[in-house]
């Protein structure tokens, strides 16, 4: 019984993690059709913000919840102004440019902070479920993922900004004609996507520590989740993360992490064969 509960919790955590990991990318890719190959490095930047700022005495929670999204968000806006704004509609060029950016970021961070950095301790410690010990931090991840999705949903659904954003994504020319400064909308969207990614990186830092090259470990999972999810940000991310997270984590429990990873890839492969536009390309088409 305890074991079942622990496995269930671990699965939910895996799903929550995929949601956090890919939400920023879903915003950028899903809404703007920009392939951000530096996504992993944006995560890394979020992680570094936490490690560096806590090293300077900033409270760990402030660093994770406030500083990291702000820093990476601002960085995202700068990147958008300098690079991305010239590449809208040129999906392959954006891939190449952001790939270059990712190498630049890895090199830059290595130069400044060196190839290894002290991590931060995972806050909150452990708790027991029956005979098992689990980190309390797991619940932080789960809660953060739920909160993040709710916020994105509320913003898109109920605010004017959300309406403008959706209009711009659906038909930029018409929006422009109606007086919406689409350039600024794109910039803001990219900034917000970056901030969300920075937030995910910040939450990751206490679990794995940070190194300049950590991004490559996460980029595949993020892209697989977003592409499997399809066009709609919330439903797509949630559906893909739920499906892939539970399949891979279930396999990891049954056999081990190698087959867990393989199962995730296989599931994504089969899904994309059946639903080339992603889950929300066919099902839940009208969802956000």
């Amino acid at each position: 019984m305890d074991y079942t509960l622990v496995i269930a919790l671990e699965m939910v955590r895996a799903i929550a993690w995929l949601v956090l990991l890919s939400s920023g990318l879903a915003i950028i890719f899903g809404m703007m059709r920009i392939i951000n190959f530096a996504h992993g490095e944006f995560l890394m930047l979020g992680g570094y913000t936490v490690v560096i700022s806590t090293g300077h005495g900033v409270n760990e929670w402030v660093a994770m919840l406030v500083l990291a999204p702000i820093v990476v968000g601002i960085f995202g806006v700068i990147v958008e102004r300098l690079v991305i704004q010239r590449l809208y509609g040129r999906i392959l060029d954006s891939l190449l440019a952001t790939w270059g950016l990712s190498m630049l970021m890895i090199g830059g961070v290595t130069m400044i902070f060196g190839n290894s950095v002290t991590g931060v301790a995972t806050p909150l410690g452990g708790m027991s479920i029956g005979a098992y010990q689990v980190p309390r931090y797991n619940f932080v991840l789960i809660f953060a993922a739920i909160a993040l999705l709710l916020i994105i949903w509320a913003v898109l659904k109920f605010t004017k900004a959300g309406l403008i954003a959706r209009a711009t994504m659906q038909n930029p020319d018409m929006s422009e004609a109606l007086g919406i400064p689409t350039r600024w909308v794109y910039m803001a969207t990219f900034g917000i996507g970056s901030a969300v990614t920075g937030f995910a990186g910040a939450l990751l830092a206490p679990m794995t520590g940070v190194v300049p090259t950590m991004g490559v470990n996460f980029i595949a999972q993020s892209f697989i989740t977003v592409i499997t999810g399809g066009a709609s940000i919330i439903t797509g991310t949630l559906a893909a993360a739920g499906l892939l997270g539970s399949i891979s984590q279930g396999m990891t429990f049954l056999t081990g992490p190698v087959y867990g990873d393989a199962a995730l890839l296989l599931a994504a492969l089969v899904l994309l064969r059946l639903l080339p536009q992603g889950i929300t390309g066919r099902i839940f088409k009208k969802s956000l």
């Binding site: 074991y3 622990v6 496995i7 671990e10 955590r13 895996a14 993690w17 005979a131 098992y132 010990q133 689990v134 980190p135 797991n138 990751l204 679990m207 794995t208 950590m214 490559v216 470990n217 984590q249 990891t252 429990f253 081990g256 992490p257 190698v258 867990g260 990873d261």
Partner: peptide, 20 residues
């Protein structure tokens, strides 16, 4: 005996299995 590819960074499942 469990083997982990070098890019695995999440060990929650394994930690539960070890406890089991």
């Amino acid at each position: 005996t469990e083997f982990f590819p070098l890019d695995v960074a999440q060990f929650g499942a394994t930690i539960s299995k070890i406890q089991g």
